[in-house]
Design a protein around this nucleic acid. Structure first.
Lengths: 207, 207
DNA sequence: GCCTTAGGATAGAGCCACTATCCAACGGTG
DNA sequence: CACCGTTGGATAGTGGCTCTATCCTAAGGC
């Protein structure tokens, strides 16, 4: 198919498709000659992925490019999933190599939960975040960490089954990213409702 | 103090301060005459609030204006806190009045947790989010909701004590918004680490 | 009474994600 | 065989957002 048909099938304007081509999110079609190129179902799928990552998950062009480049380079799926986690859960804005008290608190959480003692983006991000909280005078007590980490452990335990049946790399990224995003947002919404509920109860009992 | 001193004390450029004045985030100083205005400690505090909401929490100008307008209008603190929750936890992008299955699931969660059966932004957002998930073919099972809501309930239970000692309305907004943001991000980081840990264990056991 | 400076208004910058325009080349159609 | 319409490719423009820089007028201090 040619550009116009690709546009019709994906619902994305030709101008935007050209933009994605320029930005390296969408591989070039097979050039028939100077002014014709043939696109395939793979391009439709890629556009669906791009659309979902933009509109639903809210990633920017650079983040999407990172993911699709990894996919096209054929990096191992675990690395790919780690990258998805990094961009979807905003683990990327944290410098590595945090030391001192936050690192110790992070280690304590890992031991408490019996999680494998391996370095990861998530672990760095957690340590960095604890440091940030401390610097803002919002210390996270051991009690808070205990309760939060138990909650996270419980939730992660039932989440993990979701990453199955990847027909294609693009589909894998799509389901992983969208699923991760929606589940984290679900937890946040529930947290909001729980907070509101506790606040109501508290003010009613107090009044 | 005058504009330049306000700028020095807050670390915000005079141009930006003028911008905040124009946008209605910062009340005008007391006009001495046509070309002089006197600013007070209240303005410094307000600028700190604006800065924190922008840089740390990541709110945009419109969201900040909403909060400070409410504060200046003297709305009840509970309403103010609800508004803070709405913008910090992104409850605002959801239309109200969701019905059908998602609303039923939401009601079930409320009953299960023994939360007060009152309408709220959080409740609407939850129902809307469940609807969105269903439409994306990522249904949230009763099991998921049970585990997630228990986690949220636990976390909210220890969070609620944080909202104390508000010396001023601006400080109340600041601590509430920053605290809410940092705690929700903390939970997300822990969730990321938990997910990564479960994934590692799973792949190690499987391999 | 003059010169520096504050305040206020307006316009511009820089980033992002598109979107519209322009142009040369080619293929289908008559 | 010639021509019109469309395609692909490059480039420039748009709109929203958050500032930032410039300009001008009116005062206060010396």
């Amino acid at each position: 198919m040619q550009l116009n048909e690709l546009s019709d099938r994906s619902g994305i304007s030709p101008a935007s498709i050209k933009y994605y081509l320029r930005e390296g999110l969408l591989p070039a079609g097979e050039a028939i000659h100077a002014t014709r190129a043939e696109y395939s179902a793979r391009h439709v799928e890629r556009l669906e992925l791009i659309q979902a990552l933009r509109r639903i998950v809210g990633l920017n062009i650079g983040q999407i490019r990172l993911l699709v480049t990894m996919a096209d380079d054929g990096v191992p799926r675990l690395d790919l999933l780690a990258a998805v986690q990094r961009v979807v859960l905003s683990l990327e804005n944290y410098a590595t190599a945090i030391g001192g008290e936050p690192a110790a608190a992070t280690d304590a959480v890992v031991r408490l939960r019996g999680w494998p003692d391996a370095p990861s983006d998530a672990r760095n991000a957690l340590a960095a975040h604890l440091q940030l909280m401390a610097s803002l005078n919002i210390p996270a007590s051991a009690d808070v960490l205990k309760t939060y980490s138990r909650a996270a452990d419980d939730v992660a335990g039932i989440d993990i089954a979701a990453t199955t049946a990847p027909e294609s790399i693009d589909k894998l990224i799509l389901t992983a990213a969208v699923g991760m995003h929606m589940h984290s947002q679900l937890l946040l919404k529930l947290l909001a409702l729980a907070q509101a509920s506790h606040a109501i109860r508290r003010y009613q009992d107090g009044a």
